[in-house]
């Protein structure tokens, strides 16, 4: 699905990613954990194509294509989805309109016929139920006046609508109470299939109680310094990140 080789990136001349290597196959869930400032969100942003970051080295292969060569909108149309840590408000643009515009682009890109209004509405109903999103919210302006939990649910709703190949969840658990966390995680789990993959970026282990990863990677100082299975996450929860820092810094 995605193969990241020695990826390096900087912002304002400061190197944040110092050679990331990661392979994610279809059907897999990978968790990326790490202390604050380790480069987790930067990795998510660089993969999505945010212009603030400059890629200074390495390659990323996305389903046989050179990801780094694509514009951000192309990456999205090819099936890369980023659930934002801080979803953005767009006043006056209804969620429905926004998603319709996005789906039209994705369909056009794949040479599919545009979704009919009827099919679109049916899909909205089906997918909003999946994340228990109030149907009123689908008609409101994108994220405007949404609570923190509603915003995150809306991200997963959009993901469900767009059916990406690779979903990157950037700190999706931040700011969620336990009920909202469960709902969001349920949504993600229901969307899992043999054909898609998920990268969960998180600081805490608790999200991984609900979205169970196949692999856990620890990011520190711009590099993946440790990889393992879900037990690694539990170990981190118990001991904190300091022992990893010590191991690496020695």
């Amino acid at each position: 699905m995605i193969s990241i080789n020695d990826l390096k990136a900087e912002i304002d001349g400061k190197e944040i990613l110092r050679g990331i290597n990661l392979d994610v196959k279809a059907g897999e869930v990978h968790a990326i954990m790490g202390p604050n400032g380790s480069g987790k969100s930067t990795l998510a942003s660089v993969l999505a194509g945010r212009e603030d970051y400059e890629v200074t080295g390495g390659t990323v292969d996305f389903d046989g294509e050179d990801l780094l060569d694509m514009d951000p909108e192309e990456r999205a149309r090819e099936g890369l989805f980023l659930a934002f840590q801080y979803p953005v408000e767009i006043p006056g643009v209804s969620n429905m309109n926004f998603l319709k515009a996005a789906l039209e682009e994705v369909h056009a890109h794949k040479n599919l016929d545009p979704l009919s209004a009827k099919d679109f509405l049916a899909r909205v109903r089906e997918k909003s139920a999946l994340v228990e999103l109030d149907s009123k919210l689908t008609n409101r302006s994108v994220n405007e006046g949404f609570s923190g939990g509603e915003k995150k649910r809306n991200e997963i709703f959009q993901m469900a609508m767009l059916e990406p190949k690779l979903a990157i969840l950037d700190e999706t658990d931040s700011g969620l109470d336990i009920d909202a966390l469960r709902i969001v995680a349920n949504g993600v789990n229901k969307l899992k299939s043999e054909k898609n993959a998920t990268i969960v970026v998180t600081h805490y282990q608790r999200l991984l109680d609900y979205i169970v990863p196949d692999y856990v990677h620890v990011l520190y100082n711009g590099r993946i310094v440790k990889s393992g299975t879900k037990e690694l996450a539990l170990e981190l929860e118990e001991k904190g990140y300091d022992w990893i820092k010590q191991e690496v810094d020695v």
Partner: peptide, 15 residues
């Protein structure tokens, strides 16, 4: 941020 959010959903800058 608003523009990048749209781009990330597949909507080009002009749209």
């Amino acid at each position: 941020d608003q523009i990048f959010y749209c781009l990330q959903r597949g909507i080009d800058e002009e749209k």
